[in-house]
């Protein structure tokens, strides 16, 4: 593979004043997004660091989910959508919005976990194997191995190993969501996108998912959209605050929650709107 390019995060200081220059995974530049004539994202630029958890927060309708869905080109599924700007995936720096870029290729490298658990009407095993099969893995032994690995990494293996071939719909909501995480990470994606993954879950299931996400960043870059500020505070390394389709502030989570630079951020974090 290519060596890591020397793209750097725009110099930013943590509390100690030491300049942090993490390696960049996804480089969003001047991204605008239009839904028909509506501009939903305005000129967003943001460098997502590798092997960290980046949270996107903001009041509903601010465009955080829209931004997330730009990254794996989900908007291409519906007519009337238009992107401007670029999103580069490092290393390599390919523009995933570039002309001729196939959304299917993009999606094979970005995993996604949705607001509500959405297991396929298939067995637990087949749910996890789905993406692997899509990527051309057909040998039963390879599949078995990778399915087990993904289920272990999503802390589900012990609960389901005896009933891998039962329908996924028999699992509880929290288990289903962990299954969806297993499905998303089974193919070793570069980035995993979480779209409010715990909004349909109870607190216990939520904390399990949060633990998983923190654990996961050792191996993969995570971007999570959440409406839950405490959740962003608990699990993310960096936070992006969006408002009305614009990126207002982006920085180290601890710093942003204690000492926001922009007044809107402060208002939102302190609960004055949204």
């Amino acid at each position: 593979m290519n060596p890591i390019p020397a793209v750097q995060v725009s110099g930013e200081k943590d509390i100690a004043g030491v300049e942090v220059k993490p390696e960049v995974k996804v480089e969003i530049q001047n991204l605008s997004f239009f839904y028909g004539r509506n501009q939903v994202l305005r000129n967003v630029s943001l460098d997502v660091p590798a092997y960290q958890v980046t949270a996107m927060i903001g009041p509903s309708g601010c465009g955080k989910t829209t931004l997330l869905r730009c990254l794996n080109r989900m908007h291409d599924l519906y007519p009337g959508n238009r992107y401007e700007g670029s999103v580069r995936l490092h290393p390599g720096g390919t523009d995933i919005l570039g002309p001729g870029m196939d959304p299917i290729r993009v999606r094979m490298r970005f995993g996604m976990v949705f607001q509500k658990p959405n297991p396929f009407p298939k067995s637990i095993y087949e749910n996890v194997a789905y993406g692997l099969r899509l990527q051309g893995m057909n040998k039963r032994r390879d599949l078995d191995e990778r399915v087990e690995k993904a289920l272990r990494e999503s802390a589900l293996w012990d609960e389901v190993k005896s009933r891998l071939h039962q329908l996924a719909h028999n699992l509880s909501g929290g288990q289903q969501q962990r299954l969806c995480i297993a499905r998303a990470i089974a193919t070793d994606p570069d980035v995993v996108l979480f779209d409010e993954p715990t909004s349909a879950l109870d607190p216990i299931a939520t904390s399990k998912i949060e633990e998983l996400i923190v654990e996961m960043k050792k191996r993969v870059t995570v971007i999570i959209v959440t409406h839950n500020l405490q959740q962003a505070g608990r699990i993310s390394d960096r936070t992006a605050f969006m408002y009305l389709g614009e990126l207002i502030e982006f920085g180290e989570t601890n710093r942003m929650f204690t000492n926001p630079a922009k007044p809107q951020t402060e208002d939102y974090i302190s609960g004055r709107f949204g």
Binding site: N72, M74, L77, I104, R105, R107, M108, F110, G111, M112, F114, Q115, K116, N118, P119, F120, P121, K122, Y130, G131, L134, Q135, C180, R183, A184, T187, L193
Partner: peptide, 25 residues
Amino acid sequence: MLLREGAFALGDGKLGVALRVVFPG
């Protein structure tokens, strides 16, 4: 639609989603 999106997000094509997810569903 959420179910379809789950499959699209893994990189499946339209016909694949139709046959492997929508059809069984």
